[in-house]
Amino acid sequence: MSGVDVAIVGVGLFPFGRYPGTQCLEMGAQAARDALADAGAEWKDVQSAFVGSHEVSNPDSIVGLLGLTGIPVRAVFNGCATGGTSLQMAAKAIQYGEADLAMAIGMDKHPRGAFSGDPSILGLPAWYGQTGMFLTTHFFGMKINRYMQQHGISRETLAKVASKNFANGARNPQAWRRTPMTPEAILDSEIVNYPLTRYMYCGPDEGAAALVLARADQAHRYTSTPVFVRAAELRSRRPGAFEVQSPSLPLESAPSPSVDASKAAYEVAGIGPDDVNVAQLQDTDAGSEVIHMAENGFCADGEQEKWIAEGATELTGRLPVNTDGGLIANGEPIGASGLRQIREIVLQLQGRAGDRQIAGDPRVGYTHLYGAPGASAVTILSR
């Protein structure tokens, strides 16, 4: 990133799950307070903030719970890439001189039944979801089915990816799903959209996450272990990309926006995939994590089969992926999900990840988001 260097000096989380008695704004405010406490700062110190949500039309109204200080607070929504976008905008606010201390906050409270076709959601009858016709599940099923046929990926590999994420979630006291599952049990669960079964998908839920960012030359005021934002890039799709609104077009006709975003991030950060020690990849389903391993440059198409068999993406592997359980174990409140990813990387780089802490003194972390109908955000962090 050009200009002033930016550091993350505080992280906060309202654990993802289901909270019938808690308002979305309350969750966001609590995550923000936790991030501020982590940084040893107060809301009155913050000079700019970016707040992302899908369900809350005016998330900037969070100031009613945090304090009416009059600072610029902007609402953000960019599909599943919202969290990465919020961080990027907060970093830019610091680089462009609007703030020395800024925040990125994300929150959402999604209704149940997104995969069942509940009549209260989009007005669809129950059979629509039960027969596997819900748009998002149908798209991801089609996408990985085609990819498997082209590159020799097995259903067993998809099950191992999901099992790995459930196992990581079991080590994470703040994960939503904390019950380990074997690959066999995942394969034996009901099929939602072939080849994906029930436990190969993430679920929509509720929660919030927040980050405090500072000028790097002032980071010592807040923490002795700042984590620096080396790149924060966003790209949208180009004609021919294999996306929700154009699933019949050839996959090879244009790269995914994830490919474009990752290449841009590596160039800005001045590193390559081999330099990354730990990664968070969008795992809306197990197939997405497999595809995103290649799209982000960590392996070639088809090499995932060998990587997963060798345990390369496990906590003890050469590139641990989704160390907190990812979306599969945590669910996806859209506005908060990307900031949860970044929080996890910060904890890993600071050695604060507890039972899921990876070995080897990690120094470079990577986060990736992919949102329909085709936007991808990539962030590279380092100590």
Score class of each variant (00 low, 15 high):
residue 310 E to C: 04
residue 347 L to N: 11
residue 279 A to E: 03
residue 233 E to A: 10
residue 319 L to M: 07
residue 252 E to P: 10
residue 295 E to S: 08
residue 283 D to F: 05
residue 339 L to G: 02
residue 311 G to L: 04
residue 219 A to R: 04
residue 237 R to E: 15
residue 233 E to L: 06
residue 287 G to E: 07
residue 337 S to K: 03
residue 345 I to A: 03
residue 344 E to Y: 03
residue 241 A to L: 10
residue 237 R to H: 15
residue 239 P to A: 12
residue 306 K to L: 13
residue 224 S to F: 00
residue 288 S to F: 00
residue 282 Q to H: 15
residue 278 V to S: 02
residue 286 A to Q: 08
residue 333 P to M: 03
residue 247 P to G: 12
residue 344 E to S: 10
residue 338 G to D: 02
residue 258 S to V: 15
residue 289 E to G: 10
residue 314 E to F: 02
residue 239 P to M: 09
residue 340 R to G: 02
residue 328 I to R: 03
residue 242 F to G: 04
residue 313 T to E: 03
residue 246 S to I: 09
residue 306 K to R: 15
residue 240 G to A: 12
residue 232 A to Q: 01
residue 266 Y to V: 11
residue 340 R to K: 13
residue 334 I to N: 05
residue 242 F to R: 11
residue 238 R to Y: 09
residue 346 V to F: 02
residue 265 A to Y: 01
residue 266 Y to F: 15
residue 323 T to S: 10
residue 270 G to Q: 05
residue 298 F to K: 04
residue 296 N to D: 10
residue 292 H to F: 14
residue 236 S to Y: 04
residue 324 D to V: 07
residue 319 L to Q: 05
residue 222 Y to I: 08
residue 248 S to N: 15
residue 316 T to G: 12
residue 305 E to I: 07
residue 240 G to S: 09
residue 225 T to V: 10
residue 255 P to A: 07
residue 318 R to T: 13
residue 311 G to E: 02
residue 240 G to P: 06
residue 243 E to D: 11
residue 218 Q to A: 14
residue 242 F to H: 15
residue 282 Q to L: 12
residue 226 P to E: 08
residue 322 N to Q: 05
residue 345 I to Y: 00
residue 237 R to C: 14
residue 216 A to L: 01
residue 290 V to H: 03
residue 323 T to Q: 04
residue 284 T to G: 13
residue 236 S to R: 08
residue 338 G to C: 04
residue 306 K to F: 02
residue 255 P to Q: 03
residue 335 G to S: 04
residue 346 V to K: 02
residue 278 V to Q: 01
residue 215 R to T: 08
residue 337 S to Q: 09
residue 302 G to V: 04
residue 221 R to L: 11
residue 340 R to S: 11
residue 263 K to E: 15
residue 291 I to V: 14
residue 232 A to F: 00
residue 221 R to C: 06
residue 251 L to Q: 12
residue 309 A to T: 13
residue 314 E to K: 08
residue 233 E to Y: 01
residue 344 E to W: 01
residue 225 T to Q: 10
residue 246 S to V: 12
residue 344 E to T: 15
residue 244 V to K: 08
residue 348 Q to R: 00
residue 295 E to N: 08
residue 337 S to M: 12
residue 325 G to V: 07
residue 260 D to C: 11
residue 220 H to F: 03
residue 341 Q to V: 06
residue 331 G to L: 07
residue 313 T to C: 06
residue 316 T to C: 06
residue 221 R to T: 08
residue 218 Q to S: 09
residue 268 V to A: 14
residue 303 E to H: 02
residue 326 G to N: 07
residue 301 D to G: 01
residue 258 S to Y: 00
residue 231 A to F: 07
residue 246 S to D: 13
residue 315 L to D: 00
residue 277 N to I: 11
residue 227 V to A: 05
residue 284 T to M: 14
residue 293 M to A: 08
residue 293 M to V: 06
residue 309 A to H: 05
residue 297 G to E: 04
residue 341 Q to M: 09
residue 258 S to M: 14
residue 257 P to I: 13
residue 256 S to I: 09
residue 296 N to P: 03
residue 316 T to L: 00
residue 300 A to Q: 14
residue 235 R to D: 13
residue 227 V to H: 05
residue 292 H to S: 12
residue 324 D to M: 05
residue 267 E to N: 11
residue 339 L to V: 04
